[in-house]
Design a protein around this nucleic acid. Sequence first.
DNA 1: GCATGATCATGC
DNA 2: GCATGATCATGC
Length: 443
Amino acid sequence: MMGKINYDKKSADSIYNFAKQLTGRSLAEVVQIPENAGNARSRGNLGSLIEKYFFEHVPPNIHLPDFEEAKLELKTTGLVKDSKGNFKAKERLVLTMINYNSLAKESWESSTLLNKCRLMLILFYFYQKDRPVIDFKFPIEPMLYQMPEEDLHIIKRDWETIRQKVREGRAHELSEGDTFYLGACRKGSGGEDETLQEQPFSTIKAKTRAFSFKQTYLNTLIAGHKNVAGLISRELSISIEEATKQKLNPYFGKTLNEIADDISYEGLRYQAKSLKHDLLVRILSNGKSSVPELDKAGIEMKTITLNKSGKPKEHMSFPSFKFLEIVNEKWSDSSFCEKLEKKFLLVIFQLGRDNQERLVQARYWNMPYEDRNEAQKVWEDTKRRVALDARNLPKASENSIAHVRPKARNSHDKILTPQGDYHVKQCFWLNKDYLFKVISAVA
DNA sequence: GCATGATCATGC
DNA sequence: GCATGATCATGC
């Protein structure tokens, strides 16, 4: 245990410096946690334990920053390691609960969210399954987070998008795909016994939601590349949509060959089926292999190629699922559900009479609520049928929106089914007829 | 011509 | 070694 250094509750810097004592240590290594703290020692909320035993501080009401005088909100959030051993966010960062009735009346400047979370001290612990929370180490320095100028206008607009949906009486239709960095995430049980909330402009009750920073956005903060110069011009503070359009503008109407020439891309010989996607990533990132702004917002870029008559040539695939997992999964926790709640950047190519594909359109889209419900039916049906016979799954002709088909390296790329045999890997696909409807609708 | 099954090259 | 973002190929 360390000698106790005092801190000044009125000073964010002082609180920040005090918090640094945790770096490289666990809570239990820094302060004595009473034995009688009971369950809290092992499974309690680490954030509350930090407040109580480390800061010895009692926060005011939930609408104010935890350190009211310093206008500083304290957050404690988990890290895990990715396959390369780098830290990434275990989950999204919940900022504050949404009250639909008051949100509808708020302005951004006087909002509960900004008032509470304008300045945050974020403590990152390394999550380890089955260990007591007081033994989780804090492997990296705490972060004093103030919304960066180049992110602020995007977060503000996200907030306005959410408020707008509430003002339209559509709080029950909210989805994380509505927005870029700030999400309205589900909060609470989510099961059959979920308590739903009133909303001001509709009699339909809505799921309990909270404002949160998307996991993808948090990841970029952790990776420390939030300041990389990329898609967005800081001076202009333009929207992500506008920045995308500007980047792609020179290439509309051009063939793949012409585009590749323009950006000195040598890879056209290459036969990967992701050629167009790869080309676009290079354009949007100025030659790099990822686009930080799309990553931050968790945006899925998908290409659609139209045949000569203007209809999509192919269905749209998603990552494969595992037979043994889907049978025990819940729709709201499934990766297909998570994907469909995202925002998509659809980049459209069209095959011309000369058999050349040209870039014709780029648009943002997220899947409407009713369509997500329809996709859920396909998913539920798939779950049910996998348990009965993994070789008999929903076909494209059975539903207007989605179906299931193979997605594998080849016919030998198989995994175990509940029936005990091996069958080629499958994934969910959005039907091309549905995609045609999507891109035909006025933006 | 469409529905379904099979497969590509790449990057991590 | 495998997931990824897709396109190719075949049979009806």
